[in-house]
Design a protein around this nucleic acid. Structure first.
Lengths: 194, 194
DNA sequence: TAAATTAGTGGACTATAGTCTATTATTGTG
DNA sequence: CACAATAATAGACTATAGTCCACTAATTTA
């Protein structure tokens, strides 16, 4: 972050970060995370590698921000008035799976990077994992309060099972689609609403 | 694999593979997958790197075999006569979580490696993922046939949720312990047996 | 015994993420 | 204008996984 307090110093070129993120997003979408090098990203962005590493601590850190700072923000829960929690959850999961069609490779690579980089793991959890986990928790809390689930339901465990199921499918290259969203929801809410 | 049909050729040194696997297992257990280099493994094993790469196509391939060829074979379902499927599943998960205390770092690293190496991903699924998935499926099938679960239960989805939940916890560095095994089982079998 | 074949050795080599360096550029301050 | 501070450039450099190479060793066959 530029030093706004101290005198002097060359100001950051404010076109650099957007250019780097745009290059990263485009190249990773086209070729896959593993097939894109830092050298290629900086060449396409027209900057030096040090310029990139001054802003992000790793390739994964950059790609996380490139994909999820704006374009990949989690779907909101708005527009769900009158819907059951079950329907909201199904729609939420279907939306997540739709976006995984574009971003699945980046996400599975970021999960992988988090295993070898503790610092990135914390960032990834804060910026990606926990916000999405929280949304599912909200939906399940509403389900309990409206008796779609028993009040005694173990929200944390069910949340881990829902997220875990799609991480498992993503990481083992199995399909993530609307039928699977429906199947997950049916396993969580065994009795269908009438 | 040694060529048993064609004439000639230097026979493989049969002490090499066990030595390499023992070195890999010890070093990865002590220091963690990422902190162990191929150079270190071959130095400890007393072989050349080409000797290793003649037997395994990658570091991950070696570590998978080192950990799960023998010592890490999935727990069996034997000795469960008279137990409910629910109890069998809880015991199975508790055993898995016990072994993850020792092998969790290796497994999360192997899951990570599978994301960037399609060939290894197939090997990992065949040798590690599917056998364990099958065991859970067996337990759940028995649960259905003995009415501990509804016969209409979606076995594949529940299996993905169970595995997924512990992968999720493993990959996000959250605890995997007996209380979590119990919580998973309680979420799958909501009504407690009397 | 020579030839063919395969393994083992001890590296050198390549590709990449990430780090470091010397130089130039851009600001604010006295 | 000189100085201090920070950024950008254009690489060189380090560490590691994985590949390649020249040489030696161990076998079988004719």
């Amino acid at each position: 972050m530029t030093n706004d307090n101290k005198p002097g110093g060359r100001p950051r070129d404010e076109t650099s970060a957007p250019a780097i993120k745009a290059a990263a997003r485009r190249l990773v979408t086209e070729k896959g995370y593993e097939n894109v090098s830092i050298s290629e990203i900086v060449r396409v962005a027209g900057v030096a590698r040090q310029t990139l590493y001054r802003r992000w601590s790793s390739k994964a850190d950059l790609v996380l921000e490139a994909f999820f700072e704006t374009a990949g923000e989690p779907p909101t829960l708005s527009g769900n008035a009158g819907l059951t929690a079950r329907s909201v959850l199904e729609k939420f999961l279907a939306d997540v799976f739709d976006s995984l069609a574009r971003e699945g490779d980046a996400i599975s690579s970021l999960i992988a990077c988090a295993q070898s980089d503790p610092e990135f793991c914390e960032t990834f959890k804060e910026k990606f994992v926990f916000p999405r986990e929280q949304m599912v928790r909200q939906i399940l809390n509403k389900a309990c309060s409206e008796r779609e689930l028993p009040p005694s339901a173990d929200i944390d465990t069910v949340t881990a099972m829902i997220h875990g199921a799609f991480w498992y499918r993503l990481l083992t290259n199995q399909p993530l689609d609307r039928p699977f969203a429906a199947a997950l929801v049916s396993s969580v809410f065994p009795t269908r609403p009438t």
